[in-house]
Design a protein around this nucleic acid. Structure first.
Lengths: 248, 248
DNA sequence: TTACGTAATTCTGTATACAACAAACCGATC
DNA sequence: GATCGGTTTGTTGTATACAGAATTACGTAA
């Protein structure tokens, strides 16, 4: 089976498991029985095991000393650490990109995406679809940035860290959509985006690194706001996971 | 089965696969057939699959689009990136530790390990066993340092990055043992160790971070020396992997 | 009522059988 | 001699049977 094959049972189990965990259908600390998941996902134990192994590698679940898996509990500290880690790695990628000095062509994609965001921000009011577009452009910009370091190793690690739903660059953007200060945060973020590309072009590695670290702090700020307003957490990917963890 | 159980077939397969890859018994890019590994390791396909999935998560092998795994090829850039990444994460851990301000008791273990290294360095000549002791103390010191950040998330990631044989804190130390400048490098490394603990105690986060980044550069220096002297590479963990990759 | 020991049940670890798919090989035809 | 097609072989994906271990539940005794 190819891991990428759409019709693959393993793929099916992986997606279903990931979604179930992220949407909070299990409580933190709950044991995940292979047989139960087998019935739930409609596949046999083999693909379920593969999905569990992958989820463990991604850090969503952890092994029990006696065997088997439990849903991981995320403390508030775990969340801020994951976000900071993402900022650290993105900062590293940005610095490497600046030190390397990408060609104008390599920077084109990132700039195009930023122009798209700029266009959104010109509107006096942002609709829900506008926010969806922003989330998409933002995610693509971050990936383009990771790519600018031209290092498969760095790309791989930053991708892994950002795979945790709440550590992703767009993890808390949706929450902002409901808040009055949403527009201001997005504009701040966009200024970071523009500045880091400017820094990379000017080969200012230290500045690029510092900017991406600070950029991740926006996510931490949003996290604080989210924790103060628990009702909205459920709307977010990974939200229930967080609340359950905090309740522990 | 518990992943930690010593007698476990899965554990057996994981260790055997890892060793086989690291010692260069497969060529980079070579396809790893499950059935072949089954015969080789004396276990059934199920544990072999688990071992392959784990090796992929560790970054030693990668999946083929059509299914199956191949041994990953490591370019020289991959190696330096992995080492730098380790330095980045260790620097982050050190900074976090400094900002947090560990108690004297928490620092005790790290200091004890450093005292052990100091004692070794007092000797006029270091034997092979002395180097083994150094490698052990060094590895334990680094783990103790990771722990000082008091963040499971950070510990987890730095452990993962350091799992690649050539990115490990002690990856190239053994190579030094044969070189005349070995003692000088070890003394430099030990000075980094002592300084970073001093910085953490003084809550000098930026200094602690910079020191650990620079500390990792020692490994890069050793890598350069190793690449210039291919014959010695085979003695190292992961050495053959590198040579094969460089030969690509 | 609580604690302890035993039995039953559930779970994971492991091996293996079967099917679908891909690749390699061989032969035939142009 | 080269190319195309079919066959054969090997590989992975998937399901499942069986055994051992762990956890849970229950009953008994203090």
């Amino acid at each position: 089976m190819s891991r990428e094959a759409e019709g693959s049972q393993t793929r099916k189990a992986e997606l279903a498991l990931r979604q179930a965990i992220v949407e909070g259908e299990f409580r933190a600390g709950e044991r995940l029985s292979e047989l139960t998941l087998t019935e739930r996902f409609g596949v046999s134990r083999t693909p379920v095991r593969a999905a569990l192994a992958r989820a463990e590698a991604e850090g969503l679940i952890e092994t029990l000393p006696s065997g088997g898996y439990v849903v991981r509990a995320f403390s508030e500290g775990d969340l801020t650490d994951a976000i900071d880690l993402r900022g650290l790695l993105e900062g590293f990628a940005a610095r490497r990109a600046a030190e390397r000095g990408p060609s104008r062509g390599e920077l084109a994609e990132a700039k195009l995406l930023l122009a798209g965001i700029d266009k959104l921000l010109l509107k006096p009011e942002m609709s829900a679809e506008d926010f969806d577009t922003y989330v998409d452009l933002n995610a693509r910009f971050h990936r383009a940035l990771w790519d600018l370091a031209q290092s498969p190793t760095i790309f791989r690690e930053v991708e892994r860290v950002a795979a945790l739903p709440f550590a992703s660059p767009s993890g808390f953007v949706r929450l902002q959509a409901h808040l009055p200060e949403a527009r201001a945060v997005v504009m701040l973020a966009q200024d970071h985006h523009l500045s880091v590309i400017e820094a990379i072009e000017a080969r200012e590695g230290a500045r690029a690194e510092a900017l991406m670290r600070e950029h991740a702090r926006l996510a931490r700020r949003n996290l604080q706001a989210a924790l103060a307003d628990r009702d909205r957490l459920d709307e977010l990917p990974g939200g229930p996971l967080i609340r359950h963890a905090v309740n522990l």
